[in-house]
Design a protein around this nucleic acid. Structure first.
Length: 439
RNA sequence: GCGGGGAUAGCCGAGCGGUAAGGCGACGGCCUGCUAAGCCGUUUCCCUAUGGGAACGGGGGUUCGAUUCCCCCUCCCCGCGCCA
């Protein structure tokens, strides 16, 4: 949620932000109108309550003195009726205003590339040595802007779908018959690889000062609604029947909600959390995309970086979370690029977002493995996470970034590290822990 | 699930129909070679702000007036039951 005082004092900031997002500004105008109505009603209601409180004190005094208070009581009752009337209108207006206010997207960062959709996303960084099938060279050069090292290969890597099934490392058909499409059974060494990857990732973040956290895998509606815009997310969430509970779509939500309604001490900031959890997503509206395999699924495991920081530190930490993720994929020797997400593709919550896209040689594409967002105080305001500053309580800034979504990172390893005989080379950094070099 | 006890400010904790004590911590100030102690102030939210309003887990009710009495709900603690 944006700060109402911006709506009152600097609405031009919001109009400008909406323009950059290529979104309609009607919502801003409506919020301004509802807010001024609300303030007018509040003023009148408060005046009446002040009158009422005076009368109540008068009654108390009269009773103590033994005088009759009946006429004053009658006036107090009259005022009560008026207050009730104003308060009913006040509540109604407040609900409307808040509904609109919550839908106003975050203010975009002035540095985010301005474009109306993902075609305006800017690839800003490239790293690693990409293995490129000879038929994909032209496409690769275009995707990498010619800025990335690569070696051309005669060998076309098999799609992870075919390879994993053939090697007995996954069974998708059985999963489809017992749960539906976009589910999977992982088998054998692939499970071990996943588990090793998670273990390595947790140790990696712990060494960087993150507190490891395994959160609840379900949240009630209020908590979900604090962490995100529930109405916007409702389509992706699985609901538990007969309970006020939803399976989490990311550990970002329970971690964000972890400190809701708290006032932190300045010395305790920043707070860095590394969440590990399964993620459940309906993937509604994704029909036809990645229908096979484990790239886009209803359930996966994720290790997430989350930071609560002082406002002046958020840009710095955004960079830092991204650097952590880059370091991680560098260590795994997976080639990747970093994409600066365009204003029109940011989503309502982020002010700025960088994605890391790994190179997938079988698909011949860079695809998202990490998404690192600076949310500013947008989430903290909803959740009421503040710290005690010198000049009063201040909303913190929150940031989140994937470290690994296991399925996608596994696919990246399987595609990049496969040999012509179908074996998969275990990344060097995982070998000791895993106890194998090849699977 | 059953019975009993609880929930008051950042934390601890009194009040139990007349309008939120006190302590600790934090911040600001005074004092002071410096620190400590001491003293004063601030320390939930909202508004058009020298003022006013709201808030005692949440919601409803009784009352001129509810932290206090009544009802419903949530969570925590103790015991019992059930289960891993």
């Amino acid at each position: 949620m944006i700060d109402v005082s911006i709506l009152r004092k600097n609405p031009e900031v919001l109009f400008e932000s909406q323009k950059r997002r290529f979104q309609d500004d009607g919502i801003i105008k409506e919020a301004i109108k509802l807010d001024s109505e609300w303030r007018e009603l509040l003023r009148e209601s408060n005046n009446l309550k002040a009158d009422k409180n005076k009368l109540v004190r008068e009654i108390g005094e009269k009773i103590r003195k033994g005088d009759s208070a009946d006429s004053v009581k009658a006036r107090a009752t009259e005022i009560d009726r008026e207050i009730e009337n104003f308060d009913a209108r006040l509540r109604e207006t407040e609900t409307k205003r808040d509904d609109v206010l919550k839908k106003i997207p975050n203010i975009v960062d002035s540095l985010a590339p301005v474009a109306k959709d993902e075609t305006g996303n800017a690839a800003v960084y490239f790293e690693g040595l990409a293995r490129v099938y000879k038929g994909d060279v032209e496409s690769f050069t275009q995707q990498s802007g010619g800025k990335m090292k690569n070696e051309v290969s005669d060998f076309k890597a098999k799609s992870h779908v075919d390879l994993l099934v053939k090697r007995g490392l996954a069974n998708l058909e059985s999963a489809a018959s017992v749960a539906g499409s976009r589910f999977y059974y992982l088998l054998g060494d692939l499970v071990l690889l996943e588990s090793t990857l998670e273990h390595y990732a947790l140790k990696f973040l712990q060494k960087k000062g993150f507190t490891l956290v395994e959160p609840p895998f379900m949240l009630n509606k209020d908590a979900t609604n604090g962490a995100t815009d529930f109405t916007a997310f409702e389509d992706t969430l699985y609901k538990i029947e007969g309970e006020d509970l939803y399976l989490i779509a990311t550990s970002e939500h329970p971690i964000a909600a972890f400190l809701s309604n708290t006032i932190l001490e300045e010395d305790n900031l920043p707070l860095l959390y590394a969440g590990i959890s399964p993620c459940f997503r309906k993937e509604a509206g994704a029909h036809g995309k990645d229908t096979k395999g484990i790239f886009r699924v209803h359930q996966f495991n994720k290790i997430e970086q989350f930071a609560f920081v002082k406002p002046e530190d958020s840009k710095n930490y955004h960079e830092r979370l991204l650097e952590n993720a880059k370091e991680f994929y560098r260590a795994l020797e997976i080639p990747f690029r970093v994409v600066d997400i365009a204003t029109g593709d940011l989503g309502n919550v982020a002010s700025r977002k960088f994605d890391i896209e790994a190179w997938y040689p079988a698909q011949g594409l860079f695809r998202e493995v990490v998404s690192a967002s600076n949310v500013l105080d947008y989430q903290a305001r909803r959740l009421k996470v503040r710290y005690r500053g010198k000049e009063g309580n201040v909303y913190v800034h929150t940031l989140n970034s994937t470290l690994i979504a296991t399925t996608r990172t596994l696919v990246a390893i399987v595609e990049n590290n496969q040999k012509e005989d179908g074996s998969i080379v275990v990344p060097k950094v995982l070998r000791d822990e895993m106890g194998k070099e090849v699977i």
